[in-house]
Design a protein around this nucleic acid. Structure first.
Lengths: 217, 217
DNA sequence: GCAAAAGTGTTGAGATTACACCCATGC
DNA sequence: GCATGGGTGTAATCTCAACACTTTTGC
């Protein structure tokens, strides 16, 4: 007889793709939720910090190591998993693109990115988790610089603005946005421009790629 | 052989007393940290949500039920407790006064309030926990109305301002503070005044005693 | 030439800060 | 009467939001 619940981690991995916010989903293989989608996760073994388990999980899913990872909160309702009482420490991660995705990860039958608006009914309490993660993401983008982890090393102001518009869900004034962002001194202009269908845009890079509190919006 | 760590909760219970921010400490009875001070806590039993364990723990320590309680974050370093790998879900609570304190709680040898500036070296990773709790408290007071849970039902603007000054650690302009707070509409003036050594002060009460996001500072 | 994104300044309104004097009470 | 906290208004500054036209490119 166990004295205390099991401990797991679950990770909501966000990216921006196709003009919207998406999260990585995996299909549950067995148990009462078999066939349903969920966020990737796994049990925390004795001797390993949950932060480490989350990093490991993330790496094995995306193959990417250079990501932003933050603890969200812990869900512990005894009925969240009907098979056993599992207390889950939830994390959210930001990655710069869909990447290759370990499409052949043996742990899950299927894995795919799904848009955050319009998620299906997920396994466990993961719809609750999705909501928490989204709230946190929105508020963190407003007062920290973590948006850098959603973007490649080189970016244009238009691309940065697009991300903000997608996540906070309303258009921003381009002139005010540019002025504010540049005034923060987080971006360094490069000597190059991005060429595309239209007028070339100045390329910038983040001067510091580490989390800091900054009033972005 | 366990598959997964044990789960516990720890609760940092704050109050304002004697003009400063204090937290409830208990003396550890046994193990490598015997005799050291720590925040109250305990193992989460199978079948009970950590939130419930925390509420129970809080009630048994302070005898008070009507408090603000919020999950902080989860600490899971395998070495935080040398006896076993215990993942601890940390909470912080706000109470309106020292209260009677269950001085005779059989679970701990001693229990006392200690000032947050000038904590001793605590058991486990509780100095880290103290720091997290303090940071969260400071930021939450700035953008929510939870200060109501640090104050009795009837209060003066002077008392409210004192709390803010203690916690953010700098003096505020009285006229600007009053104007801003009253403009938020969180306070309802009563027909009575508080009499003391000096000019009587208007008494107010919070119109809503439930957590809301409000820009207080 | 036209569609589409890039680039650029100014102005008005509202919010925030700084600041000084009188009032009521207990001792 | 004096020490102490309670109560009140205004002016200067800063911040934020609103807003339009020109440029460069690919097709």
């Amino acid at each position: 007889m166990r004295r205390s619940p099991l401990v797991a981690v679950d990770v909501v991995i966000f990216t921006i793709a196709d003009g919207e916010l998406q999260a990585l989903l995996v299909e549950v293989k067995s148990g009462p939720f078999a066939g349903r989608w969920a966020f990737p996760g796994g049990l925390v073994p004795v001797g390993e910090a949950p932060d480490v388990t989350a990093k490991r999980e993330l790496l094995s899913q995306t193959g990417i190591g250079d990501v932003y990872l933050e603890q969200l909160r812990t869900f512990g309702d005894p009925k969240r998993d009907p098979q056993a009482h599992v207390v889950s420490v939830a994390y959210f991660a930001l990655v710069a693109g869909k990447g290759e995705g370990q499409a052949d990860n043996p742990k899950y039958r299927r894995m795919q990115w799904g848009p955050m608006r319009d998620l299906p009914s997920l396994a466990y309490d993961h719809n609750l988790l999705a909501q928490s993660a989204l709230e946190r993401l929105r508020s963190k983008l407003a007062y920290t610089n973590i948006v850098y982890s959603l973007l490649p090393r080189e970016l244009t102001l238009g691309e940065l603005q697009e991300i903000y518009e997608i996540i906070i869900g309303r258009p921003l004034d381009r002139r005010n946005f540019r002025r504010r962002i540049l005034a923060l001194g987080l971006l360094r202009p490069l000597r190059r421009q991005r060429r595309g269908r239209h007028r070339p845009a100045q390329l910038y890079t983040f001067t510091r790629r580490e989390p800091m509190n900054v009033e972005m919006l």
